[in-house]
Design a protein around this nucleic acid. Sequence first.
DNA 1: CCAGACGTTGTT
DNA 2: GTCTGG
DNA 3: CCAGACGTTGTT
DNA 4: GTCTGG
Length: 244
Amino acid sequence: MTGMCGRFSQYSPVADLVAGFDVDETVTDDGRPWRPRWNIAPTQDALVIASSADGTIRKAGPMRWGLVPRWADDIRIGNRMINARTDKVATSNAYRAALAKRRCIVPVDGFYEWAKPTVAAAGAGRTSKTPFNIHRADHAPLALAGLWETFSDAHDHLLRTFTILTCEANAPTARIHDRMPVILAASDFDRWLEPTPLGDDERARMFTPAPDDLLAYDEVSTLVNKPSNDSPELIEPVERHTRP
DNA sequence: CCAGACGTTGTT
DNA sequence: GTCTGG
DNA sequence: CCAGACGTTGTT
DNA sequence: GTCTGG
């Protein structure tokens, strides 16, 4: 199927989400004020931070999740471009241009991963996957590494779209799932947002799983499965520090 | 040259 | 657009 | 990521 | 099973 890191939250106040990114301007979502979100799904708008083409202005604003390459003629291509693998992104026709010049940061409160049922659970008749909310242990927002593009639709409407980079899971996350989003260190924010190509060494440094002690996770309700559910209840732990 | 892909994960 | 495959 | 649709013609 | 929509 499609990507991993397929759902996330942005419920902190915008000022908290963009804190630390030295943003010059925050664009509202089509004139609507930002509202907290606990269940952002592919094709929906999220708050994303990116630089102007010349690198002088840093903006936070809405982009649609699911990168649509410039050459695409159908926005639906984005439905399966919600993640970009770090081991393929530099050579991919779909992502290479964005990797060189259009990197972005997605500030999230947490992201969701679904664990397959354990052998024991499956034996007991449980066949559905279990959702987990993964967040910083101190509950501060996380900076996910992304890429963005502009897409001009049939009516010449300009649409900004983005994707989230994925790498191998770190040790705690691997108990739930074998992939995870790339989480940037604060010392890499400025370089990541510069619209100039990265060197091999820079990619090697940034494209690594987050440190094992950065994150914590909670099992959550399957209410999160349904994209139309969007409330604080989705991040309430149903069990703390459980194993999948 | 033109045609066709361009993506990810999970599962088998 | 740009690359690979035929 | 998960949820939900997936089809056509003719008749009421 | 596979695709689209959110």
